[in-house]
Amino acid sequence: MAFITLLTSGFAARTIHAYTQVNIATPFMYKNIDPIVFPGEYDKSHLHSFYGSDAVTVSTQTSEELRGGCTNAENPNDMSTYWTPTLLYQSGDSWEPVPVMRFSAYYGLGDEPASIPFPENLQMLAGDASAQTSDAMPAEAHSEWFCEGDANNGLDGNGFPTQTCSTHLQQLLYFPNCVNTETLEYAYKDGEPGSYHECPSGMQAMPQLRFSIRYDMREVVPGGWSGTAPVKLACGPAWCSHGDFINGWTEESGQALVDAASLKDEYLSVNGALGNDGDMMSCEATDADPEHGTGDYAESVEVMSKRSVPAVGWTSRNRLARSRRGM
């Protein structure tokens, strides 16, 4: 796929205090692939929502591969690909993706300045796709579901808010912030956000990546809800929330992320040779392998042939395999 560098100007300056961030308006595709967990396999993964570089396929493994694509990120120097299980709502007899108002990848310091940028070819996972209860959800990922700006009215049995969101249903998810640059093994620092300690032996600190996803429920569930939220993830309840990341930042901008992550309460734009923070490529991100896999939820379930779907939520008769790097 040709690498298109012609840019259209977006808003280059931001006013929020978030270290630095990359915004993406919507997924560029929905697809039942996962090149980290199930590389090369089309019949194993549930449906995911993909953001960023569209060069990703079921077999993508390197940063350089991603740099050969088109990104829908609001920073052309970020050729990374990000993906999450698709959030679904019931429309008649089918389950359809809930519209995304905005996906944001935040990069912060993780309490102490990062010492290294993300290594080339780094692949990371946060959360656990097989978790079906709150106890099974990895605590280090600090996954949260809540209504943006609303009072906390509690969570239903599936881990989603029990009351209608006045604006957006929002999710937060934290990624590991330590890495061994030779093996690309990664881990979380000891402690909690706000009081992190040291990296495990043999690892160095990298910027803290955090997903923030805002979903707009107002059109798809216009009557709102009280009690059990009328949504589910393609992997099941909120407890199975997880995220995937393959690094595609240009070398120059990847180093700039380290500088941005040195700031506690100040926003720093990350610019580079391909443009400025807020710029967008003039190309349109699309599926690089449209002949394989599916973006339809029902078809993805049929392909897996392992899951049954009750009225709201779902059950699994098979836990997904873990990747070699852990999940």
Rank of each mutant, 00 (worst) to 15 (best):
M280Q: 15
L66E: 08
S300Q: 11
F160K: 08
L172E: 05
H168E: 05
A136S: 12
N152D: 13
A139P: 00
Q21L: 11
F11W: 09
F11P: 07
G227C: 00
G223W: 14
F245N: 02
Q163M: 08
S94M: 12
L233S: 03
V179R: 11
P200A: 06
A256K: 06
G293N: 12
S316R: 00
D128T: 00
P117Q: 13
P113R: 10
G236R: 05
P138N: 06
V98I: 04
S195F: 01
Q21E: 06
A13V: 10
A311W: 02
E120P: 05
S9I: 12
S130R: 04
W239Q: 02
T133W: 10
V100R: 01
P161I: 03
S323K: 04
M327K: 04
L169K: 06
P138E: 04
P85K: 06
F28D: 10
I4M: 05
A114V: 01
N247V: 02
Y188W: 07
V270A: 09
L88C: 03
P99R: 08
N77K: 08
G248L: 00
G108F: 00
D216R: 14
M281L: 15
Q170M: 09
F211H: 13
Y188K: 02
V270S: 04
G313W: 04
T57K: 04
E96D: 06
T315N: 13
V309M: 14
I36L: 14
S104K: 12
L184Q: 06
M304H: 14
E252K: 07
V22S: 03
W145K: 01
S300D: 09
L88V: 01
H48C: 10
Y267A: 08
G293K: 06
Y297G: 07
R14L: 10
Q61G: 00
V231L: 02
S201C: 08
D43P: 02
D111L: 05
P85A: 07
E252G: 02
G40R: 11
H168F: 12
A12I: 03
H242Y: 05
S45R: 03
S212N: 15
E302D: 08
D287H: 05
G313D: 03
T162D: 01
P237N: 13
S323G: 15
P161L: 02
